[in-house]
Computed example of a mutant assay.
Amino acid sequence: MRRRVGLMVVGMVTAAGLVAGGTATAGTQTAKRPAQQHVVVEDITIPVPGQDPVQAWYVHPAGEAKKHSAPAVLWLHWLGEINNDRSEYLSEAVGLAGKGVYSVLPNGYFPWVPNPDGTTGDVTLVENQVAAFRSALDRLASERAVDPTRIALVGHDYGAMYGALLADSDDRISAMVLQAPDALMGNWFAQFWLQLEGDARTQYLVLFDGLDPVDHTARLGDRVLFQWAGRDDFIGQDVRDAYAASSPDAQVDFYERNDHEFRDDARADRLAFLADQLGLPSS
């Protein structure tokens, strides 16, 4: 139903080059140092206790930084038709690395790879995915340069839903951007994979009690930014209202002409939010 996108491993690059859509192979550098510092994009494998390891990109400025001096971001991608993996936010991570930000971008597993089957096994897979993303956060926070008080999370679609669960249970996350999360963790499983209706749907959704993202976004108050799209076929006013009720202090951006994928105006706004929350230079 949706596909994964093949990716090329990138080595040493300049922030400007990759953001502009250029490619580079390992070891490539510009002959003349640009205004932004060089950026390293590393293909890493993150161990997860009791699970298969997670493949991720670790994006960071070249060179050494002082201990606990740098902000960081954990990026959790969507389940979509394009950039359906860790590639979704790569250009943003590279751009921020040019300003000294450290990032980890892990691949998601469920429901990107296995399909929900309608059993309690789906709940276990959700819990396992949260644990896997927590391991990615562990990897990011373990970096000597990362300031443990300035770690943000950005998530879209399922990435936002998992991000809400992770951030509510882990106070290392100090700010987050959530793009178009559904309110109920099992809702899309029931609708798009399992085609459940009536009592069967109700009984299935009950399995996810305690794992509904809408109940896990209030902790950070106004350090949360929701981004909603007016032409979103998957998220309606009822979902936006549910989050407004559960997180009344959160900041909200609404893009009347955007669909579920969003566009460049949403990108610019979330980068501005991150700059403010992480104390980044304005230019």
Rank of each mutant, 00 (worst) to 15 (best):
W78G: 04
S91K: 15
R270L: 13
L196Q: 09
S282T: 14
Y89T: 09
D276H: 14
V40G: 01
L211P: 09
P47A: 10
N187W: 03
D269L: 10
V10G: 01
Y109T: 14
E197C: 05
G279I: 10
A15R: 07
V130Q: 08
A200P: 06
R263Y: 12
R267W: 04
G63D: 00
A15I: 01
D52L: 10
V94Y: 11
E42P: 03
D222N: 15
R134E: 10
W188N: 06
W78S: 03
F234H: 03
F226C: 04
H260S: 09
Y243W: 09
L137G: 06
G155V: 05
A272T: 12
S91C: 13
L18Q: 13
V54Y: 04
Q203K: 15
L79R: 12
G27W: 14
G163I: 02
L278V: 14
T30W: 10
P181E: 06
S142R: 03
L194F: 01
E143K: 14
A167C: 00
H216C: 14
Q36G: 12
D168Q: 10
Q179W: 12
V48E: 04
I173S: 07
A141G: 03
R219D: 02
D43V: 00
Y109W: 12
D52P: 08
V123L: 04
L278K: 03
A20H: 01
A15N: 05
F133A: 06
D85L: 01
A65H: 00
N258Q: 08
V101A: 00
S103N: 02
L271V: 10
V9S: 13
A200D: 10
G236A: 04
G95T: 06
A266C: 05
K99T: 07
Y102E: 00
S69N: 02
A65L: 00
A132K: 15
V146R: 00
F192D: 11
K32M: 13
I44G: 05
R257H: 07
Q227C: 02
R267P: 01
L7W: 13
D52I: 04
V59Q: 00
A70D: 00
W188E: 06
Q203E: 15
D259N: 15
A190G: 04
W75H: 02
L271Y: 08
F133M: 12
A97H: 01
E197F: 09
A31Q: 11
V9F: 04
P49S: 06
S174D: 06
G236N: 07
D264G: 15
I82M: 06
Y255R: 01
D147R: 02
V177Q: 04
N115I: 08
I235G: 05
M185T: 13
R4L: 08
G198Q: 10
I173Q: 02
D212I: 07
A16E: 15
A31P: 08
W57G: 01
N83Q: 11
L96N: 05
V123N: 05
R33A: 13
E261R: 13
D138Y: 09
E143V: 11
P49E: 11
D85Q: 03
I82F: 12
Q277W: 04
H38S: 13
Y255G: 03
H216Q: 10
